[in-house]
Design a protein around this nucleic acid. Sequence first.
DNA 1: ATTTGTGAACGCATTCACAGCT
DNA 2: AGCTGTGAATGCGTTCACAAAT
Lengths: 211, 211
Amino acid sequence: MSDDQARIPEATTRRLSLYLRVLTDLERTGADTVSSRGIADLCRLNPAQVRKDLSRFGAFGVRGIGYDVAELREIVAGLLGLDTASRVVIIGAGNLGQALADYPGFHGGGFEIVALFDVLDEMVGTVSRRGHPVHHIDDLERIVRADGVRIGMVAVPAANAEDVVERLAKAGVRGIVNFAPVRPEVPEGVAVRNVDLTVELESLSFFLRDT
Amino acid sequence: MSDDQARIPEATTRRLSLYLRVLTDLERTGADTVSSRGIADLCRLNPAQVRKDLSRFGAFGVRGIGYDVAELREIVAGLLGLDTASRVVIIGAGNLGQALADYPGFHGGGFEIVALFDVLDEMVGTVSRRGHPVHHIDDLERIVRADGVRIGMVAVPAANAEDVVERLAKAGVRGIVNFAPVRPEVPEGVAVRNVDLTVELESLSFFLRDT
DNA sequence: ATTTGTGAACGCATTCACAGCT
DNA sequence: AGCTGTGAATGCGTTCACAAAT
C-alpha cells in the first residue's frame, strides 16, 4: 500500500471522507454492522459505488452481513491518514482565515491547527476565538519547518496566492487547500485542492436562468 | 436556449466561471482577442476543452484569429445569468457566514447579498463588516419572499442544515450553496452545491500518507 | 435470504485530429 | 499560416449483474 495513492481516483478519496463521517455517526448511535446500501443511502450514493471504493483497499465486509461499523471506521480513518494528526497552518487571518481556524469540523482529530499568518501588523500577536495565534508572514518558513507542518490553507487575496503557495511548498508543506480564486502552479509532490467560492456561486447561477 | 440547461454538464458551467474570470482579467490588461490556447493556459486546461465548452452555446470565435475578449466576456457573463443580479441570503451569521457575506469575490456584480440570518438574539440587529444586516431566522421566509431572493448560502451546524434547506426551498429559493457537512435532500427544481471543508482537508490527507 | 466483491457494460467527459474558414 | 468547430477516439468513473460466501 505504498505507492497505491496514485492509482486511487480523487473521487474515491473524497467519498472515503464521507464514509468516515457516516461511520462515526453510526458508531455513536450504537450500530454494530452496516451494509453497503446503508452507507450508500446516508451518502446518497449507489451501493455498488461504496463496495467498489472499499474493495480498492481490501475485503473488509462479510457476505450476508455487511461491514463492522467500528472496524470499518478505523480502517477508513487509517486510509485517510487520520490516525496521526497532521499539523496545519492558515495563511491569511482575515474573515475567511479566522473562520477556517475555528471551524469545528477540523477538530475531530486528524488535524492540528498550529497558527495563522498575516501581513498586517495589527493582527500579529492576536489570537482567534479558539485561541490560535496569528504570526507575521515573515515567520512562515521558520514555523513550518520547526513544527513539521504538512498542510497549508491559503486564504489570501488572489494577487498573493501564487507567492504564498510557492513559499509553502518550498518550506516543505505537502498539501495545500487553496481558497484564493486562482489556480496556482505547484511543484511535483505537493497536492492541491482548490475551493473556489466564486465558481460555486456563478456555476449555480447558470441553472437559475429563466426561472 | 430554454431547457438547454439540463443538457449542459456541471463541469462545463464551472469552467464558464473560470473563463469569465480570465476574460475579465484579459480585458483589464487591454487584450483585444484571445485564442482557445490563451484561455486554456490561464486556466490550466486543454484548448480543445475550451472550444468544446464554448461551442455548446454557439460559434463565438473567428478562425485564424480567436475570440474577441470583450464580446466573449459579455457572452459568458450572460450564459451564467450574471447580467441581472441575483439576490442572496446567508443562513448562519457565525464566523463562516460573516466571511461569506464580506467575501470580495461575490461583489463583482451578478450577486447582491440581502441579509444574514441567525438564531442567536445577540447577533440579530448587528451588521457585518461590510454592513449586511443580521436578521432573526424567524424572518427568513418573509424576507426571501418580499425581496425575491433566489439563492441561499447555508453556513449553519450540520444538525440544522436539513431544516434550513427545506425552509429555503419552500420559501422559493432556487439555488443553494451548502457549507454544512451533510448532503441535504432538496426538492426537484432546486439546484445545490455542497462545499464540504472536511472532505477537502481529509481527502487531501489521503495523498500525504507515508511522506 | 442476504450481502459482498468484481468483471463486464455503460455513460460521460476529455482529448485528438482534421476539415474549414480567415 | 493560424485558429476554430466538431466528429471520432479515448479514457475513466459509475452502475449493473452475478458468482461466492454466510
